[in-house]
Simulated scan of single mutants.
Amino acid sequence: MSLILPSMLVLLVAAWKFDWRPWLADKTRQHLSFGAAIVLVPLWMLQAGVKDGLEVHFLGLTTLALMLGWRMGVLMGTLSLLLITLFGFDPWPDFGTNLLLGVIVPLSFSYFVFLLTYSYLYRHLFVYIFVAGFFNAALTITVKTLLFSGYMVWSGQYSWQVVMDNYVGTLPLLLFPEAMLNGMAITLLVVFKPQWMNTFFDRDYLINK
């Protein structure tokens, strides 16, 4: 658990800065948060790989970040990973690494991309769906894959050639499905349940467009 300490530090910051009072008073927000965490569990269970530690799966972290925001997204993503580990799909010694490189950094990156689109691009529904959602998801899974690749080589678990052949080489197969999965989820949520999206505001993306 070499990366557990920085992971715990990020979690403490996220929990400390989060405004818990309105969240605790709103049962709908609580159900939405825990429901989002539970939905990720079967998605992350669908793992495939040849080498131990080099398994691939869809992330869904872009949808989580846009739904819940950075702080609650990090906390609920941690809950999802905790459940996956408890169920035996990930080993406990890798929990810190999986948390930091597989949840915290990719989700933070995804939220940062959203902030960039919100700050510098024209605020339109299609920009939100296709840039902050679709393309953002593809970039996020790329970041996660490269992070794990670098860590595996740096830690000496596998050579760069093995990582390239058995892990990085699968990335082109994941980009479009990951982008489509998040893009469709965000589209459905924006159309039918916009109040569930922490980062979507009618006044910015729909009114007077």
Rank of each mutant, 00 (worst) to 15 (best):
N182R: 04
Y120S: 11
Y151Q: 07
Y128T: 03
Q195A: 05
F114N: 03
F200Q: 05
V143F: 00
L173R: 09
L189I: 02
W154A: 14
L101V: 05
V131L: 06
F87L: 15
S159E: 13
G133W: 06
N166S: 08
M180P: 11
Q161H: 13
V74Q: 14
S149H: 07
N98H: 08
W160Y: 12
L189F: 02
L125D: 11
L75V: 10
A185E: 02
M164G: 14
W196C: 15
I129E: 08
P194Y: 05
L189C: 08
M76K: 08
L147S: 03
M67H: 11
D165R: 12
D165F: 13
T170I: 15
L68G: 09
W196I: 04
F176T: 14
W154F: 15
S159I: 02
D94G: 07
L181A: 04
K193T: 14
V191C: 01
V162I: 06
G133A: 12
G156M: 03
L107Q: 12
M67Q: 14
L171V: 07
Y158V: 09
G73P: 09
M67T: 15
L83H: 10
T187M: 04
L81Q: 14
L175V: 02
G102N: 03
L181T: 12
V127Y: 07
F126Y: 14
T170E: 04
E178K: 08
S108K: 07
L82Q: 11
S119M: 08
N198D: 08
P177D: 11
G169Y: 02
G183Y: 00
M67L: 11
G96S: 11
L116H: 10
M164W: 13
G150A: 06
F192G: 00
L174A: 13
A185Y: 01
Q161T: 11
W70M: 11
V131R: 09
Y167Q: 08
L99V: 04
G133Y: 04
L189D: 00
F95N: 06
S108F: 04
Q195N: 07
G77C: 07
F192Q: 15
I84C: 15
T85E: 00
Q161P: 05
V103S: 09
K144L: 06
F130L: 10
S149A: 15
S119G: 01
S155E: 11
P172H: 02
Y128F: 14
L121W: 00
Y118E: 04
V143N: 06
